[in-house]
Design a binder for these strands. Sequence first.
DNA 1: TAGGATATTGAAAGAACGTTCAATACTATG
DNA 2: CATAGTATTGAACGTTCTTTCAATATCCTA
Lengths: 212, 212
Amino acid sequence: MDMPMNAERKSRNADAGESSAIDLTSRARIRNAGLHQFATTGFAGTPLRAIASEAGVAIGLISHHFGSKDGLRAAVESWIVDQFAAAITEADAAAPDSVADTAGRDAAVAQMLKANPLIVGYLRRELLEGSAGRTLIARLARLSLQSVDSMRSGGVASTDRSRVDQVVTVMIRQLGKLFLQPLVDQVVDSFSADERPAAKPELTITVRTPQN
Amino acid sequence: MDMPMNAERKSRNADAGESSAIDLTSRARIRNAGLHQFATTGFAGTPLRAIASEAGVAIGLISHHFGSKDGLRAAVESWIVDQFAAAITEADAAAPDSVADTAGRDAAVAQMLKANPLIVGYLRRELLEGSAGRTLIARLARLSLQSVDSMRSGGVASTDRSRVDQVVTVMIRQLGKLFLQPLVDQVVDSFSADERPAAKPELTITVRTPQN
DNA sequence: TAGGATATTGAAAGAACGTTCAATACTATG
DNA sequence: CATAGTATTGAACGTTCTTTCAATATCCTA
């Protein structure tokens, strides 16, 4: 049972990640393809065969590396959490007192999300589909809470508001606009080209907590 | 091949619609169940058998009435568009000059959405999943454009802004808060009960169009 | 009441899905 | 070089999905 050598296997896959994807491990390529597919067509809507195809691997390799489809999702979500944590860590490293303030961390996270639009797409879906028992949003909220606490300790965040308030404010500010922008885009794009405004309308989202 | 009479078949289904669901036609019960399932578990995530079970019918009846799963989805979306149109029509009927103003129509739509939370859930998903070729958001935008135009003709809407601007503003105002509230809820709920604020934080969303 | 049209059922077909697994290729360590 | 461990493949399996369809029930009209 002869089988052809697959020499250029890694070269025929879409660029799903940020690296050049040519010298990524099969495991990383599968994870990237999973992020791309889940963010684009949803978890239930993507067959494992589509992920294997995009990653340029055989379907069996997914189970070998991640155990199951759910295992792959867990790996994708852990990778997302890592990206958030890394963005905050970088912002801190660049700050004078090794603790960045709100603006610095917001900027770092915004930059990371801009570089990884698939993360935004994935989170948008997760927000809807993961209502029961799933935990990605909760994990990010916990991460945000640690960030808020460390900023409080560093004296760069006010302490006269509740911690919950601050976490909600931070997360909404970071994600809300990104979540809602597709609605604006789809509405604008539903008009004929000559009627569309030159610049897309921009959203402003604020959070107001009632007297506590 | 005797088969038992299913006398009380219609009584064992969840209340997905607004009517008492006891004297709805099979077609309507299937449509309601489809809306419920699609909004809750997503289009790809819901088997037709789940819809048939919730509606209390055999699986074959779905194909008979709607042709296919996609046909059912089309029917659900047309029904949603009808609800929006009906809300606007009612607001107009109650207005003095038979053309309600912005506030009146906003209130009518908000009331309709509050009475049909499944529509909100469905739209939230549609906004993400229907990026390619699908048209529900576009249809609602067109409906909103007709509304804006009629208000302009009736002299109850300003004409110094572009029509696109007005449509975007209306739709974001109607839907944006509803879309983003789950994020606030999940973040707040990720905290322990004793740390949660008494009242949920409230969102304010504004649209600003750059100089045109 | 007779008969055609429509509604409804549930089994069957055919495709697609996730998972498993034996076989093969690769890599590193002795 | 040998050999153990890991990576990788793709076919096979059992399940589940959508669609089809013949059979039966119900409704409507003449």
